[in-house]
Simulated scan of single mutants.
Amino acid sequence: MTHILAIDTSSAWCSVALSLDNAPPIVRHQKVTAGASQLLLPWVQELLSEASIKLADLDAIAVGIGPGAFTGVRLGVAAVQGLATAARLPVLPVASLDSIASQLVQTPAFVASGAQSFVIAVDARMEEVYWANYRVGANSLPARQGDIHLTAPEGVELTQIDFLAGSAIAEFGDRLLASAPSPFSSARLDSSIGVSALGVLACAQDMWSQGLQQDVHLLEPLYIRNKVALTSAERSQQHGR
């Protein structure tokens, strides 16, 4: 079995997972404020020690590249750049929404729903939402349909969608559901699921099987929003004032 270390610090959680032979992954996952930089590398060492392997024994390192919190994304990418360079390992870059999708399709509620098409919608701050459309493939893994979008909550496209998940549900409520042709039942909504290293690991394992690992020197964050600050005039225009 392939040994992959997965890291994500793109959200309010610091998350690390390590795949092991014929055993569940070892995981550290904790909500933090500004402490991810203090936890990340010690956790990596803890997981390697628990598995009785060295960094160089890994096949690859996976990392959540965003979109997400600017500082958190850069922390995770920089850490993996250092680790992979030191151990001469390839990397597996995973988009945060793809990671969430990989977790969602394994949840009992999603499986019971029989959904085949779904949207992951995440609060992007500044009254906007990161979102993407997915379909369940023949291998029961999610396949993203097109790019990750950044729009107002009302701009999320929910026609012909069987399931909706992500933090934008709790944040925006009816504004997010505006484009749905009919109300979603509670059984087809998951507002609590978020990004974690387990989702990054699930995506990374699929990528590895397809030979999609890459050189660490090609690794960089995924930025959907090009501008993170607005002028007073731009804010007024955005809110119709």
Results as ranks from 00 to 15, higher is better:
residue 79 A to G: 00
residue 39 L to R: 09
residue 82 G to K: 04
residue 77 V to F: 11
residue 75 L to V: 12
residue 75 L to R: 06
residue 79 A to Y: 02
residue 60 A to D: 03
residue 58 L to Q: 02
residue 64 G to M: 13
residue 85 T to C: 09
residue 68 G to F: 14
residue 51 A to M: 06
residue 80 V to G: 02
residue 35 G to D: 10
residue 87 A to P: 00
residue 71 T to Y: 09
residue 77 V to W: 11
residue 47 L to A: 14
residue 44 V to P: 01
residue 71 T to R: 08
residue 77 V to M: 08
residue 66 G to W: 12
residue 72 G to N: 10
residue 71 T to D: 12
residue 86 A to T: 09
residue 57 D to C: 10
residue 60 A to L: 11
residue 80 V to Y: 01
residue 72 G to D: 06
residue 71 T to N: 09
residue 45 Q to K: 15
residue 86 A to L: 10
residue 35 G to P: 00
residue 68 G to R: 12
residue 43 W to I: 06
residue 45 Q to G: 00
residue 82 G to S: 07
residue 63 V to I: 12
residue 45 Q to A: 15
residue 53 I to G: 04
residue 49 S to V: 06
residue 63 V to M: 07
residue 69 A to V: 13
residue 54 K to F: 03
residue 69 A to R: 13
residue 80 V to H: 01
residue 60 A to Y: 05
residue 55 L to Y: 06
residue 61 I to D: 00
residue 84 A to T: 01
residue 42 P to W: 14
residue 35 G to H: 07
residue 68 G to K: 13
residue 58 L to N: 03
residue 46 E to Y: 01
residue 43 W to L: 08
residue 62 A to P: 01
residue 40 L to Q: 04
residue 69 A to Y: 06
residue 36 A to K: 10
residue 58 L to V: 04
residue 35 G to L: 13
residue 37 S to L: 02
residue 81 Q to G: 10
residue 86 A to P: 00
residue 75 L to H: 02
residue 44 V to N: 04
residue 63 V to F: 02
residue 54 K to N: 14
residue 56 A to K: 15
residue 78 A to T: 15
residue 41 L to T: 13
residue 53 I to K: 06
residue 35 G to K: 11
residue 72 G to K: 09
residue 47 L to V: 11
residue 83 L to D: 06
residue 45 Q to Y: 03
residue 50 E to G: 05
residue 84 A to E: 01
residue 59 D to Y: 03
residue 47 L to E: 07
residue 53 I to A: 09
residue 53 I to V: 15
residue 62 A to Y: 08
residue 62 A to C: 08
residue 47 L to Q: 12
residue 62 A to G: 06
residue 82 G to W: 03
residue 61 I to T: 00
residue 52 S to G: 10
residue 42 P to G: 13
residue 63 V to C: 04
residue 72 G to I: 11
residue 71 T to L: 14
residue 44 V to Q: 05
residue 37 S to K: 00
residue 65 I to P: 00
residue 68 G to E: 13
residue 40 L to P: 02
residue 41 L to P: 02
residue 43 W to T: 14
residue 67 P to W: 11
residue 41 L to C: 04
residue 53 I to Q: 07
residue 42 P to N: 13
residue 36 A to E: 05
residue 35 G to S: 14
residue 47 L to K: 08
residue 41 L to G: 00
residue 52 S to A: 15
residue 65 I to G: 03
residue 86 A to V: 07
residue 65 I to S: 09
residue 47 L to P: 11
residue 61 I to L: 05
residue 81 Q to D: 05
residue 71 T to P: 03
residue 38 Q to L: 13
residue 40 L to H: 04
residue 80 V to N: 03
residue 45 Q to V: 06
residue 87 A to Q: 04
residue 48 L to F: 07
residue 73 V to E: 04
residue 65 I to A: 08
residue 75 L to N: 04
residue 80 V to P: 03
residue 60 A to F: 11
residue 72 G to L: 11
residue 42 P to V: 15
residue 61 I to S: 04
residue 87 A to K: 01
residue 77 V to H: 11
residue 79 A to W: 02
